[in-house]
């Protein structure tokens, strides 16, 4: 264990802990922007710089491991100047389109700008035209809103192990670009971690403000993994799907289906009642009617051809219990071993 002081408070943490983690363990808040709990520290925003007694340079709390006996200060005039300058520089040429930005209201840059009281920026630089092409058609990239925190690049490489996006170019011309669109699985991990409106979901643009949306936690129905997600509901319609970092087996990650495959919920073409074909045309029916019909037909087939003429396929979207019941039904009620599952096909 290592003991240090942060803002005069003594902290004891295991070796290898970063200064940021040590501070958080005793409820000392150090501002961060690029830091994300699920990834190794990126160190691009420099918001978390702290001073260490005896060392001339401020150091990023997120990337610096603790040392025994160090005295850390998280607040000083110098640190405030650096943090303000970092934010001011980000705001150079950052569009003030918060009113029409899907992230407005839950944007980390907005929050920090407010917190640090940045009401004017005395710095300027010529705007650079940037390419808005992106790895996935399901995600829209707004290069002018991008602050280059590199959470997206890190998430793609580190959480997903894909590396479809990267940084290209030098200096002010550097930007996030797609290096291998074929590798992109449209999982939306980048979207999930973007702290600003630089990446937005392209299915639901301009459909609702974040503060009007109700987030309903649920379990994804696409497969048996049981990923936890949140339906973003406004006025009875699902506007988007998000996931909560650190929650459930998926810890905030989703796949392309879970994150983007929600439009069927409100689809006009969706079946809302069983249909029975009568005289060559589908007609609405009750569940009792439908199930009775199926049971009658199965019994007839079984009587005429034997139970071996019937087979059943079940789905990975079902739970283990449902799958178990299904095979039990096929074996005990129908009397056949012809039962299989789509995961084996």
């Amino acid at each position: 264990m290592v003991t240090l002081t942060i803002d005069g408070k003594e902290v004891t943490v295991p070796q290898g802990t970063t200064i940021l983690e040590a501070a958080r363990s005793v409820d000392i808040k150090i501002p961060t922007l690029c830091y994300h709990d699920r990834m190794s520290p990126i160190g691009s925003c420099r918001m978390c710089v702290v001073e260490i007694e005896g060392f001339a340079h401020p150091m990023a709390a997120c990337t610096t491991p603790v040392e025994d006996g160090i005295e850390v200060a998280t607040i000083s005039d110098r640190l405030t100047r650096i943090r303000q300058d970092s934010l001011k520089l980000i705001l150079v040429n950052h569009p003030l389109d918060c009113p029409v930005c899907d992230k407005g209201g839950e944007c980390l840059l907005q929050d920090l700008t407010y917190e640090f009281g940045i009401d004017q920026v005395e710095y300027s630089a010529a705007k650079v035209d940037r390419d808005s092409q992106y790895a996935s058609p399901l995600i829209r990239y707004w290069p002018d809103r991008c602050i280059m925190c590199l959470r997206c690049v890190t998430a793609c490489q580190e959480i997903k192990g894909i590396g479809a996006i990267s940084v290209k170019g030098d200096g002010y011309g550097a930007q996030v670009v797609t290096v291998d669109a074929d590798k992109c699985q449209s999982c939306g991990e980048c979207l999930q971690v973007c702290p600003t409106g630089a990446l937005t979901e392209d299915l639901s643009r301009y459909k609702g403000r974040t503060w009007l949306i109700e987030r309903v936690p649920t379990t994804c129905t696409y497969c048996g993994c049981g990923c936890q997600l949140e339906l973003n509901v406004q006025a009875g319609r699902v506007m988007a799907v998000t996931a909560q970092d650190g929650v459930g087996v998926n810890q905030g990650s989703l796949c392309v289906k879970g994150r983007f495959g929600y439009e069927f919920i409100n689809s006009d073409e969706r079946l809302t009642t069983p249909l029975i074909k009568k005289n060559g045309k589908f007609e609405e029916a009750s569940w009792d009617e439908a199930l009775t019909l199926v049971a009658d037909k199965f019994s007839a087939i079984k009587a005429e051809h034997g139970p071996g003429a019937i087979g059943g396929l079940t789905s990975a979207r079902c739970s283990n219990e449902e799958n178990y019941l299904f095979q039990k039904f096929m074996r005990a009620a129908v009397g056949t071993n012809n039962v299989d599952h789509c995961a084996r096909l």
Binding site: G171, Y172, A174
Partner: peptide, 21 residues
């Protein structure tokens, strides 16, 4: 310096650009 900045941290990427201009 600006042209050689890697662009991976805010202050160097934008700050040296502002200084250069």
């Amino acid at each position: 310096v600006q042209s050689k900045s890697c662009g991976k941290c805010f202050l160097c990427r934008i700050g040296t650009k502002v200084m250069a201009e």
